[in-house]
């Protein structure tokens, strides 16, 4: 599957079906710090993503003094 990551924007290819929770673990990301998006859907950590999916992993953390 194609996984789009941000900061900077880039794509990685991941093979095999797995739970979102496991995908994030492999990418070294904490579940509370990203939205996992498939098309117009938000996915929870127990959702299963597969070969044909295109997933966006969007960070939610904003920085600097605001």
């Amino acid at each position: 599957m194609k996984v789009v990551l941000r900061h900077p924007k880039r794509e990685v290819e991941v093979t095999g079906r797995r739970r979102v929770r496991d995908l994030l673990k492999e990418l070294g990301l904490l579940p509370g710090t990203v939205l996992v998006i498939r098309g117009t859907e938000l996915l929870t950590t127990d959702a299963i993503v597969g070969e044909d999916d295109e997933i966006e992993v969007r960070p939610v953390i904003s920085g600097g003094a605001r």
């Binding site: 900061h7 939205l35 960070p59 939610v60 953390i61 904003s62 920085g63 600097g64």
Partner: peptide, 28 residues
């Protein structure tokens, strides 16, 4: 932050996802 991002996404709000270039390395 997860909740505000989810709300913006679910409401179809087109927001800037990229970060301010000066925020990199900020202590916060």
């Amino acid at each position: 932050e997860l909740e505000t991002a989810a709300y913006a996404f679910l409401r179809g709000i087109d927001y800037i996802v990229e970060e301010c270039p000066f925020a990199k390395g900020a202590t916060s």
